[in-house]
Simulated scan of single mutants.
Amino acid sequence: MAKLYFRYGAMNSGKSTALLQAAYNYEERGQRILLAKPEIDTKGADQISSRLGVERTVDFLIRPEDDVRALFAEHRRRVQEAGADALIPDTGADVACLLVDEAQFLTAEQVDDLLRISVEDGIPVLAYGIRTDFQTRAFPGSARLMELAHSLEELKTICRCGSKALFNARLVGGRFVFDGDQVAIDELSADRVTYESMCARCYLRESAGRLR
C-alpha cells in the first residue's frame, strides 16, 4: 500500500532541498512525479526554491478552497494521456509519486485528501513542511499530517548556539516579534519579515519566557 509521508523541520532544515532531491531520484529511475505547493506561499510564485539555489516549477498550485484529490486526478490524467516523455524512459504513463512543499499551509481537509490519494488511489505522497509557527503553535496542515501520516521524519537543523533547533522565531526589520498573523511570508513585506530557527532555550530568552 502506498503511504503518506510527512517530513518536517524548522526553517533552514533543508526541506525543499530534500524534496527536490527526492524528485530527481524518482525521475532518474524513469518515474513520473507531480510537484505541488499551496498558493498562499507567494515566495517564489510557482517555484519550489532551495536555499542552495536549486529551483523547479511546480505542476500545480493549491488554493485554500481546492479539493486536492480532484486536482491531483486532473493532473494525473494529463500525465497518463501524454504518454512516454522523450527525455524519460517509458515505464508506463502514470504518476509514481506526489510531492508537496510547504504542506503546513494546507487545510486539514486537504491533508485528508492526501491520505486518500495514497491509500485509495495508490500513489505515495511526500509532504514537506514546518511543524509550528512563530508562536510555537501547530499549523493546521502540519497538525493534521502529524495525526494521519503513515511515516513522520524530522529534518534537523541547528540554533545559533549549536543546539538542535525546534522553533521558528519571526523578525520584522531585524527585531523579534511574538504577535501577529500566523502567516507572513519571509522577505516579501515592506518591513522585511524574516525567520530564525532556534532551540527552546534561545527562543525563551528572546521571548522573555513567552510561548504563545
Rank of each mutant, 00 (worst) to 15 (best):
R131F: 04
I123G: 00
S13D: 10
S151E: 15
D101T: 08
A184Y: 03
E39D: 14
L71F: 07
P140F: 01
A108S: 15
K37D: 11
E154Q: 13
L145Q: 06
L188T: 15
P64S: 10
A108L: 10
L87H: 14
A23S: 13
S207Y: 01
G44V: 14
D101S: 08
S142K: 03
L20R: 04
L99W: 05
E196H: 04
M146C: 10
K3Q: 15
E28L: 14
E74M: 12
G53T: 00
I48F: 04
N168F: 01
A36Q: 03
R63D: 11
V68Y: 00
M11W: 04
V95P: 00
S151F: 13
L34E: 00
Y195F: 15
Q31V: 12
A190G: 10
R192V: 07
V79N: 06
A165G: 02
R63S: 15
G83C: 05
Q135I: 00
E109G: 13
L145S: 07
S118Q: 11
F134Q: 10
A138Y: 00
L87A: 12
S207P: 00
R137A: 01
Q135A: 03
A96G: 13
V177R: 00
D186E: 12
K3A: 14
G44C: 11
L4A: 10
F167D: 00
K43P: 02
E27C: 05
Y195A: 09
R192Q: 12
K3F: 13
S207D: 01
I117D: 04
V79T: 06
M11Y: 06
E74Q: 13
R192G: 03
L20P: 05
Y203C: 03
H150S: 09
R201H: 14
T91S: 08
D90C: 03
R170Q: 01
Q21L: 10
L35K: 11
A208F: 07
D66V: 03
Y128F: 15
E81D: 12
F60K: 02
L152H: 12
E81W: 14
A143K: 02
R32H: 05
D121K: 11
S189N: 08
I158T: 00
A84E: 12
E39R: 12
D112Q: 08
L152M: 13
E154G: 04
M11D: 05
S118D: 09
G129L: 03
L4H: 06
A70L: 11
P124I: 05
V58G: 07
G174W: 09
E74C: 09
R170N: 01
L106P: 04
Q21N: 11
L98E: 02
R29T: 11
S118N: 12
L148T: 02
C161V: 06
A18S: 07
A45S: 14
E147C: 04
F105K: 03
Y128P: 05
G83V: 05
L115S: 10
E65T: 14
E39C: 10
D179P: 01
V125T: 08
E39Q: 12
L34A: 01
S50P: 09
G44K: 13
T132W: 02
D133M: 05
D46G: 11
F105T: 06
G9Q: 02
Q104L: 15
